[in-house]
Amino acid sequence: MNLVRSVISLFLLILLGLCIAGWVWAGGQPSPKMEGARFVLALSGLGAVGCGVLLWSTRQPVPQ
């Protein structure tokens, strides 16, 4: 279970890192594009964090 969570988390961390990098990059863009880009990058970053929290808060199944 932890192996699967770790593999998924790797992708989520890459996504989060790119969202942060994109946020910084978008700061150099003209105004209407900057707000639009930052809005969806923030949503994607929050989604990645939320997904990670959900996966790691799930308890290990009890073997039967």
């Binding site: 699967v4 998924i8 996504l15 978008a26 969806v40 996966l55």
Partner: peptide, 24 residues
């Protein structure tokens, strides 16, 4: 209102995240 690169990164993230939760 949203540039294409960021928009489609978002769309793919928004599909990928619930998909992996479902698989998990």
């Amino acid at each position: 209102v949203i540039p294409r690169v960021e928009l489609h990164l978002f769309y793919n993230a928004a599909v990928f995240i619930p998909m992996v939760i479902a698989m998990f």
